[in-house]
Amino acid sequence: MPQVTELNDLQVFPDGVRQVTCRDCLAEASDRLGFAFSMAFQPIVDIDRGEVYAYEALVRGPNGESAGSVLSQVNDQNRYYFDQAARVTAIRLAAELGIEANLSINFMPNAVYKPQACIRATMEAASIYGFDPRRLIFEVTEAERITDRGHLRSIFDEYRERGLLRAIDDYGEGFAGLNHLIELEPDLVKIDLNLVRGVDDHQSKQAVIRSTAMMCEEMGIELIAEGVETREEYETLRSLGLNRFQGYWFAKPGFETLPIPEMP
């Protein structure tokens, strides 16, 4: 990782990137990024409790354009600013919408220079907008290639110390598999949608999810099935012991709104 020169409360990195605060990161992001973006929100439901467990913040264009149209503009030069601004934007919108559930935010570990410094704007945003940071979940996708596993572990450790929930997204699709569960000790794991798709008619997928559910229960990790699109998928996953779900069958993402899910 690059060396950091500390100047009072300001972090200055060799490439000229400095630690921004919640108050200036959105304004600075406009200059650094050269593009605008917003968020959509999709509920994660808890069937046992009959309520929304969390809303995941999903990046969108300023007028609801696809995530791909935004992420295609992120590069090595602006990744840090995008990651910081995305966190603040998600918290600000969630607070304005009056979210009462947890808020799940995707983050880019390769954009985090120093965990202690890079979380400051997030915590400041939570304070400014009156959002309890204990309701924040930070998701890292297993499909993203991680070049420095020790650095990712240090991020997870820092977030744990601050009382933030940590999740592995796309479990079963990426590069690390079981090693991520052992090394990162997440609070939550989201089963990749490719395992969920058509699970009702696929015994091998059922066996993998069943064993994953048993393993996570023993490790004290909450399991979420994402990408659920049919009743048959839901009922099969329910029979395998899962109780938290996300997907179009419950609700599609709402652009700058909090959709109310259909509960079975």
Rank of each mutant, 00 (worst) to 15 (best):
Y53L: 10
Y234K: 01
F41C: 00
N106V: 01
A85R: 02
A86T: 05
G247I: 00
F156I: 11
R244E: 00
R120Q: 13
L93C: 03
H202S: 15
T122Q: 00
A57L: 03
Q246N: 12
G174C: 13
N110F: 11
N243R: 14
T89L: 04
R134N: 13
Y234E: 01
E173T: 12
D76V: 05
I44T: 05
P62T: 08
F175L: 11
I44S: 01
T122M: 05
N243W: 06
G174Q: 09
S69H: 11
E226W: 04
F41N: 05
F255D: 07
A101C: 10
A27S: 14
E222P: 00
D169P: 05
M39Y: 01
D192N: 10
D170P: 06
E142H: 08
V12Y: 10
P109N: 10
G163D: 11
R60L: 11
S72N: 13
R87I: 07
N106P: 02
N102E: 11
E28L: 13
P62N: 11
L242S: 03
N78Q: 10
I99G: 03
I137Y: 04
E235M: 09
F37Y: 08
M123Y: 08
E142S: 12
Y234A: 02
T5W: 10
A40H: 00
E124V: 06
R87L: 06
G177R: 13
Q84G: 03
D24G: 11
E56R: 01
K114T: 04
L223C: 04
D83N: 09
Y248N: 15
L103D: 07
R18S: 15
F175W: 13
T212M: 11
R166M: 14
E65Y: 06
L103R: 02
I260V: 15
R60W: 06
A54H: 01
V196I: 15
P264N: 09
A176S: 13
M214C: 09
T257D: 10
